[in-house]
Amino acid sequence: MDNIYEALRESHETQRKLCRRLLRLKPGDPRALAAFDALRIELAAHAAAEERYLYAQILFDDMGLKSSRHALAEHHEIDECVEAMETVRDQPAAWRVHARKLSHEVHHHLREEERKFFQLSGKILTERQKVGLATRYRRDLDRMRAVVA
């Protein structure tokens, strides 16, 4: 059976691929807009499901409070980068700058989460919780992808 971390890593890989695709395409290319929209949907759906089914659990433990708050703040920073990209859709130079910043923020967050937050939360959650949270996270991720789209 898979656990919450394996489920999260699947979305993380999708986010990384979409960031790479976004940076390879020229601003103004319809494929760049499609890549951005796919990334925007994946980021929003993932953040909502992850906050509900991982961060909320860890917030209740004193050991996880600081790390959860930090991770939530990084989600907010990513949201702000997405909003900035939406305002410069018709400005190729600004688009490229904001796309790089968004990609940097996403990669930083994923790296930090996988290297630090997963280890800390793994000490807090039981094996049974990790498996149960994976199921609930996947269900909510799918639902949120449809809601955000």
Rank of each mutant, 00 (worst) to 15 (best):
L22K: 05
R69W: 09
A71S: 14
L22I: 07
G64K: 05
D62K: 09
R128K: 15
L72D: 03
I124T: 05
E112M: 08
R136M: 13
T14F: 02
K26Y: 06
D79V: 10
H76C: 14
P30M: 12
E127V: 09
E127P: 10
T14Y: 05
E13M: 13
K66M: 15
H98T: 07
L43E: 09
D37L: 14
D37K: 12
R115H: 12
L125A: 04
K26P: 05
T14G: 10
L43T: 10
H108V: 15
L23M: 12
K66H: 11
A32C: 10
S11G: 07
L8Y: 01
R20C: 04
E127C: 08
L33C: 08
H98I: 11
Q91H: 13
H70E: 10
H107L: 14
L33P: 02
A99T: 09
A99D: 06
E113G: 00
R9H: 11
D79G: 11
R69Q: 13
H108G: 06
K130C: 12
S103C: 14
A134Y: 05
D61G: 04
R128P: 03
V88Y: 04
L23S: 04
L120V: 05
S103N: 08
F36L: 07
R21V: 08
L59D: 15
D61R: 04
L120E: 01
V97D: 13
R52C: 13
Q119C: 12
D79R: 14
A35T: 02
E105L: 13
E112I: 07
Q57S: 15
L102R: 00
L54H: 02
V131A: 11
D29Y: 08
I41E: 14
H70D: 11
R96L: 09
V131S: 10
T126H: 01
L125E: 02
I41H: 04
L39G: 02
T87P: 03
D62I: 04
R21H: 08
R21P: 02
A49Q: 07
Q91M: 12
E77F: 10
I78S: 00
H70Y: 10
V82F: 07
H98N: 15
L25M: 06
E127A: 14
L110K: 01
H104K: 14
M85W: 04
G28E: 03
R139P: 00
K116M: 11
T126R: 03
R89D: 06
E13G: 13
D29K: 02
T14S: 10
V106E: 02
F118C: 09
E10K: 15
L72Q: 08
R9P: 00
S68R: 03
A71R: 04
E74A: 11
C81Y: 02
V97H: 12
V82Q: 01
S103I: 06
L133S: 03
K17Y: 10
R136T: 15
E10H: 08
I58C: 05
L43Y: 00
S121H: 01
L110F: 03
I58K: 01
F36I: 05
D61N: 09
M63S: 13
S103F: 00
P27Y: 04
H75F: 11
L23K: 05
E51M: 05
K101L: 14
F118E: 07
I78G: 00
A71Y: 02
L125W: 06
A56K: 12
A32I: 03
Q129F: 04
T126Y: 00
R89C: 09
K26W: 04
H76K: 15
A84G: 02
A49F: 03
L25E: 13
R21F: 03
G64R: 06
L23Q: 06
Y53C: 08
A44P: 03
E112L: 07
P92D: 09
